[in-house]
Amino acid sequence: MTTPTRGARADRAGATPYLYLAPAVVLFTLFIAAPIGYTAYLSLRRVQFSGLGLGKKSRTEIFVGLDNYRTAVADGEFWAGWLRVLGYAGLVLALMLGLALVFALLLDSARVRLARFSRIAIFLPYAVPGVVATLLWGFLYLPSLSPIHATLRTFGFENVDLLSPSTVMFSMVNVAIWGGTGFNMLVLYTQLRAIPRDYYEAARIDGAGELAIALRVKVPILAPALVLTTVFSIIATIQVFTEPMTLRPISNAVSSTWSPLMKVYRDAFVTGDLYSAAATSLVIAAISVVPSLLFMRLVRRQAFGEER
């Protein structure tokens, strides 16, 4: 093999990185950038019927500027949906992450028995698809056949409706916690196992008990993992869709616009207005980014301070 000239070598070095990048760029363009671009394009248009809207060529697509955005933002139901989702997300975040942290710390402490079994038992619900989990719980929420209601009745609570307007949100929160705690616990637990045991020994020598070790040593070290799980959970709960959508057929208390994403689904696939759905989904995307960014900014110093 002959040694190539300097120029050829530089050319080759110039092309190679792009070739490496190409798969990622192609995938990104095809599956992320292009659909977002198309969504943005659709959001500026709508269908215009001429005549009765039946028969050929009675349907044309026209450019309407920001009309769809104006309608989306002016819809009171849209903002009511956001309120419901904020309440839901607040509850899920606090309870699910709290439980995940407690379980992770318990499993990590030396004294717990049946650690492996408990770990799997807590994680297992995560492996159940959301729709299945919600259907399962949904049937348990229906009174006549449910062990939940049977139990409530033995304690004197007759006629508790778990799918009424005032309770249905808690019923959904319950499903989300049941399904999500395991995953978050596992992330935190894995991080805990990576902490050198010497730290605990040092703490013990300084006279710290298990509780003090958990609160003063483990939790601060867990901070980056907690941030990670919180951000993921914020994004997931804001986009809540499966639980309300699956409970809707069995409850009179879940409207077709219960969460903002459900409104998008209704517009796109039930009432056939892809254009409004496109505009609304872009508004949702913009709004969803805000809490995540705010949270990251808030905790950046505490969580990642030592890395900077």
């Binding site: 049937f139 229906l142 009174p143 006549s144 056949l145 057929p249 069995i250 409850s251 009179n252």
Partner: peptide, 13 residues
């Protein structure tokens, strides 16, 4: 009856 039909509950009723 005003419960949502087509559920196991409704079937049972």
């Amino acid at each position: 009856d005003t419960q949502a039909p087509w559920t196991p509950e409704w079937n049972a009723a």
